[in-house]
Design a protein around this nucleic acid. Structure first.
Lengths: 184, 184
DNA sequence: GATGATAGGGAATGATCGTTTCCTAATCAA
DNA sequence: TTGATTAGGAAACGATCATTCCCTATCATC
């Protein structure tokens, strides 16, 4: 089931919600129409499940990338680098289901908006936590405004997915090098 | 015609491309179905025309905001502030047709992707120009990496539209205050 | 004043969508 | 072995979509 949801998520990422037909989903999930509707109430339910699965996987990847750093500042650097990598190449071209859900559905679907907001706020809280860790271990100055910096970094990560989907090249080391000035 | 395109653009921003029906467009543009198809080849042509119109208007607004600054650094600050303002409130909730077009169509529609890329690259070139102006007038240090900083600022502006559409509150002065560290 | 051209409006059309329904096959308990 | 229950697959349904066609005013021209 998780692998089927992964495949559904990939289709939703690439084509968006409305351009993805049930036929696209059944082909991607290797399930027949009836089977999809036995497992899920409707198309929106498939999207929400794929969204949750995608968010959980990405969360783990982000935490894993951050864990490679030896202090708060380095953990943030690895997290940002991971975001740039995921915004590039084949995955970048495919897109992010959180960004897609926000842009395509947030205005009209309160349920999707709630998930999107929860996901963004969780990421923001994670970033804020890393900044505080850095301030505690001395790798980030105390005068850095935690919440504002975290929110701006969220904007950067979301913007990276947009720019990556437009297929503009992104140089991880250089972009992150500039972004790290925010922690000065 | 321009006002009709403005109205079409608003609908495309809010609902996205695929969720906008011809009926939505005729209602917004106050035109009958036949009239729309007399003026435009198909729905995609309406979108492209609305996109061009939107991009032209926004470009003027952005240039106007930047012009309020007295040097390169201040022009950048006003430009960023303008972006935050437009990403907030009713307009922020409605969304940006460039971001929407990128996320929803860039992967599958080469024509839209070309417009999106042109628009993003034009904005990026404008930002890079402002940075160079600032370096020339002494308000921005010479060691600032022009192209990388410009691309990161593009990520910030696009990300602001995503976060604004998700309805998270954005404090212009604080966010821009943090972002200006990129010019240190 | 008559006529031709043109722009705008609205009904009709074929295709495609999401969803439902029904049928088949497989699994498991007795 | 048999019967019952369930998951999976495919056809059918109504609704909606983008698009086309045709009709009707309006206006300039002769």
């Amino acid at each position: 089931m998780d692998t089927a949801l992964d495949r559904a998520g990939r289709v939703f990422c690439e084509r968006g919600y409305h351009a993805t037909s049930i036929g696209d989903l059944t082909a991607a999930m290797r399930l027949a129409t009836g089977s999809v509707y036995k497992a899920f109430r409707d198309k929106q339910a498939v999207f929400l499940a794929a969204f949750d699965r995608y968010a959980a996987v990405r969360r783990e990847e982000t935490r894993g990338a951050a864990a490679r750093g030896s202090n708060g500042r380095e953990r943030l650097r690895h997290m940002l680098l991971s975001y740039v990598e995921h915004s590039q190449g084949i995955e970048g071209r495919r897109g992010c289901i959180v960004v897609g859900g926000t842009v395509e559905l947030a205005a009209l679907d309160p349920e999707v908006r709630a998930r999107v907001n929860a996901q963004i706020e969780a990421n923001e809280a994670f970033i804020a936590g890393l900044i505080r860790e850095g301030q505690a271990d001395g790798s980030i100055p105390r005068h850095v405004a935690v919440d504002d910096t975290a929110r701006l970094m969220i904007c950067i990560t979301q913007g990276l997915r947009v720019v990556g989907k437009a297929r503009l090249p992104l140089d991880g080391d250089r972009l992150v090098g500039v972004a790290m000035k925010l922690l000065a």
